[in-house]
């Protein structure tokens, strides 16, 4: 249990996917303008991350490792994720239309989100068990959500400001704000040791 909590808190706060591992920067910069789209995107990412881990982990351990085909990892994983995203989209559209309406527009973007492929490969590299992998995927998704929502708050104030130098308007000032938010997240380093040891 303690080990699970360490993985969960670690992947939400300390090794935040966006702010310290640089994964999923495109949606972080692109979809963080409004709170509802930021939340929608993060929920969709968390969902796909958990699904992708649940599918890729057995494939890696049961097929690729057993038959010594580890070199096919990249190709297999990205295909599984692409197929999974399509499948989730179709299932949601057919059976849960309200959820599809709120998440559907974000799903196609997720195939090319490196955080999803990243978390599935990291789970294998770190040699987590299945349960630990699922916790790590959940933590990565929640960490993504935390970063998105926090940054959305920062951004809504910043975009209203008229005091930004001309050449910094738009993307540059967004990146510099992200840098400051990421300084704040550096403060979490060591929090896991403090809480659990």
């Amino acid at each position: 249990m303690k080990e699970m909590m360490i993985i969960l808190v670690g992947s939400i706060l300390v090794n935040n996917f966006v702010l310290s591992k640089f994964m999923g920067i495109c949606p972080f910069l692109g979809v963080s303008k409004k709170l509802d789209s930021a939340v929608g995107m993060s929920v969709a990412v968390t969902f796909v991350m958990a699904m992708a881990t649940a599918v890729t982990y057995p494939i890696q351990r049961g097929i690729l490792d057993r038959f010594n085909m580890g070199y096919l990892q990249t190709i297999v994983f990205i295909l599984v994720i692409a197929a999974l995203v399509q499948l989730v989209e179709i299932v949601l559209k057919k059976y849960i239309p309200p959820l599809y309406r709120s998440l559907g527009i974000y799903l196609p973007l997720i195939t090319t989100n490196c955080a999803v492929l990243g978390v599935t490969i990291l789970n294998i590299d770190e040699e987590y068990t299945f349960l630990q992998s699922m916790v790590n995927a959940l933590g990565a998704g929640l960490g993504f959500m935390l970063a998105m929502v926090l940054f959305c708050g920062v951004r809504s104030r910043m975009d209203e400001s008229k005091n930004i130098p001309e050449h910094f308007r738009g993307l540059p000032i967004t990146l510099i704000a992200a840098s400051i938010v990421s300084v704040a997240f550096m403060g979490f380093s060591g929090v896991v040791e403090g809480l659990f040891h």
Binding site: F22, P172, I173, I176, A178, S179
Partner: peptide
């Protein structure tokens, strides 16, 4: 990480 975002922002 912060330095990465900062340098990128300044370059753009």
């Amino acid at each position: 990480a912060p330095g990465g975002f900062f340098t990128f922002g300044c370059l753009v």
